[in-house]
Structures are given as structure tokens and as C-alpha cells.
Computed example of a mutant assay.
Amino acid sequence: MANYKPDLSCQNKFISVNFSEQIQLGTFEYALYYIVENKLDLSGSYAWYDKTGAVTYPPSGMLKIILLGYAHGLISSRRIARLTKQVFTL
């Protein structure tokens, strides 16, 4: 198993917002989350990572961030990274 960083989207420890509870049924964000988690076969992406090296984010989480950025008109990976950092350091 690869050395992935933990998915903390369902935690309530350091921030007062639980992201998994904020995604409402029927929204684009919910559909994106559902499709990436349940319908896409990302086994090729997971197989590419090995057990050695630094801890990394899981491919499913990265894909969700990139697709959400594209859906909101952000085509620059640097801008997506900057906004992601701003959101998660509130």
C-alpha cells in the first residue's frame, strides 16, 4: 500500500467545519464526490505510487480538487493550488 496522507475531510478536530457534511445532495460538488469515489476506476493511478518515498495525497482527492477548479473556470494549476491552500488554512 502506498504511503498516502490521511483523508481528513470527515474530521472535526482542527476546524469547526466538517466538509463531508457540507456537501448537499443534488449539488455539483456532491455529484463530483460521488462519481470520483464510486464510479471511476482509479486503480491505475493508485498502482503508480509505491510504498517508498514521501507521504503524498491520494489521487482521488487530487482529482476532485482539479475537476472542481476546472468546473469553476480555473485552468491554471498554480491558481488552483493557491486557492486550495487558502481554503484549508482558514
Rank of each mutant, 00 (worst) to 15 (best):
A71Y: 13
N38F: 05
Y57M: 06
I23G: 00
T56R: 14
F19G: 03
V87M: 15
E21S: 12
K13Y: 13
F14A: 08
L90P: 06
Y46G: 13
L40W: 01
L63G: 00
A54T: 10
Y46D: 07
L8S: 09
P59K: 07
A81N: 08
T27F: 02
K13P: 08
P58L: 11
G73S: 02
L8Y: 05
K64M: 14
F19I: 07
E21D: 14
L63K: 01
F14I: 10
S60D: 14
L63P: 00
Y70D: 05
G69S: 13
Y33G: 00
K64E: 04
F88P: 03
N3H: 05
D41K: 07
I23Q: 03
N12A: 15
Y70A: 12
K64Q: 10
G26F: 01
R82E: 08
E37V: 00
K5M: 06
F14Q: 06
L67A: 12
V36E: 04
L32W: 02
I65N: 02
Y33W: 08
M62G: 13
V55H: 04
T89H: 08
S76D: 15
L32N: 04
S45G: 01
A71S: 12
Y70G: 05
A47T: 07
A81S: 07
F28A: 09
I80D: 02
S43K: 02
D50M: 02
A81V: 00
Y46H: 02
Y57E: 11
G26N: 04
S20Y: 07
Y70R: 15
T84L: 08
